[in-house]
Amino acid sequence: MTATYDATAAMEIVNAHAPGAACVDDGVLFLEPERLVESVQSLRDSGESDLVFLCNLTAVDQELHFEVVYHLQSLDLNHILQIKARVTDREDPAVPSLTGLFYGAHLQEREVYDLFGIRFEGHPDLRRMFLWEGFPGYPLRKDFLQMPGQVRAGLPGFPHESEENAWPVPGSVPQRPMHPNDPQPEGDLVVAEESEESS
């Protein structure tokens, strides 16, 4: 069974090489973006942690900031560690690229750049991957195509649940009832057919 590598132990390893670059918050190792490369390198090269395999690299839009999430795996010692790096600049988010350490970061970083707009500094070939150059916006950001008045992206709640989060407030994204048998929303909801007529 793959163990979860102790974040505190990892923090010690990182801080031994780059003092103050790592901190543990709620059991998760956070690395300072500026010193990400040397921090991760210390984790990769240290025989204790031996995190040689970059399992997964992705990002999460936390509305106020981005979190770049790395899952690093040691194959021989069979433990996994989740690392996060916070990017606070929403206008021009950037973190150093790990391509120098992990060849496998190439495509994953390009994907994150494509869908989140986070630049990976030092990436040799940072271009959009799924979308074409010049595509407006970054789709996986929470504010992508957000309708005016909508509190936040995503599904606000189940239909049968309480009133305030049952359905979007009027004037936001027009939504179609999922199924005729589903509980029909009440109030002056803009239903799809009507919106088609009006537009």
Binding site: C55, N56, V60, G154, L155, E161
Partner: peptide, 25 residues
């Protein structure tokens, strides 16, 4: 990789695709 914010839908849904990453090399 799923992130939940307590809502009914995943806040973040990420798939680590082996096909894509195997193409790196």
């Amino acid at each position: 990789y799923l992130v939940s914010d307590g809502g009914p839908a995943p806040y973040r849904f990420h798939c680590r695709p082996p096909s894509l990453i195997n193409l790196t090399a």
